[in-house]
Amino acid sequence: MKALSQKRRHPFAAIALLAIALLLTGGLYAVATATNEAKAETGGAAYSADDIAEGEKLFNSNCATCHGTSAEGTDEGPSLIGVGAAAVDFQVGTGRMPMQMQGTQAQIKPGQFNEEQTQQLAAYVASLGSGPAIPEDEYLDVSEGDAANGAKVFLANCAMCHNAAGAGGALTRGKFAPTLMGVSEQHIYEAMDTGPQNMPVFNDANITPDEKRDVITYLKTLESNTTPGGFGLGSLGPVSEGLFIWTVGLAIVLGFTVWLTSRSA
C-alpha cells in the first residue's frame, strides 16, 4: 500500500487511473449488453428461411432506397443491421415506416403492410444481426402487471417527454413525443426496447421486462379509466384549463350578464 501511495504523484498516475476506470466501465457495459443480446437471440431464432427470403424481397422493393440494398444504411436512412425484429415490428406496424416524407420525425400513418408482411420484414432484419426481439406474450399481459409500480417507473422515466398522463409533448426543433393513448401493448414494449425516433433505449438492465409490463399496465389503466373528474380536456394541464375558462366559461358568464341587463334604465 505504501508503494502505491508514494506513486500517486507519478506523472502517469492520472493516466493509469483513467485507464483502469475505462476498463472497468467498459467491461461492465460489455457484460450488461451481453445479457440483452443473449435474450434477443433466443427470440430471433423463430423465423423460417422462407420468411427471411420473403422479407428480403419486400425490403428490397420498399425500404432499400433509403436504408441501402443490404440494409447497411445511406445518407437518407440509418443502418438496420442489429436493430432487431422489435424495431421493425414497431416502425412498420405503427405505419411510421415506410416514411410518409422526410422530416424531423416519422409520422404515424395507416400501416402499409399486413401482419404477415411485417413479420417477414422483421425476420429479414433480424437475420442481419442480433437485436431486440418481438416481446413474448407474458410481458404484454396487463392482468399480470402492477399498475402502481408502473406509475412509479413511468413518472420517473417517461413523463418528462410523454406528459404525466401519456398525452405527449414537444421536443426541440420539431421533434415530439407522441401520445401513448391507443398504442398497443406490443408497440409500447418495443418502443421501450428499441428507442425509436428520438426516444432513448430502455434496455432490460435499465427497466426489466417485468417493469415494462407494469408500465404498460399503468398506461392501459389510464386509458380504460375515464377521467374521474369529467371531461379531461386532453389531460394537458393548466393551459387547456385556462383556455377553457377564457372561452367557454367566460362566454357563459357573458351571456348571463347581457341577459340580466337587457332591460336597463
Binding site: M160, N163, A165, G237
Partner: peptide, 15 residues
Amino acid sequence: NYGPYDPSPVQAGTQ
C-alpha cells in the same frame, strides 16, 4: 396523474 413531488423529474406540459 402527476404523482408525489420528487425534485428530479419535470414532466412535459408543466405549466
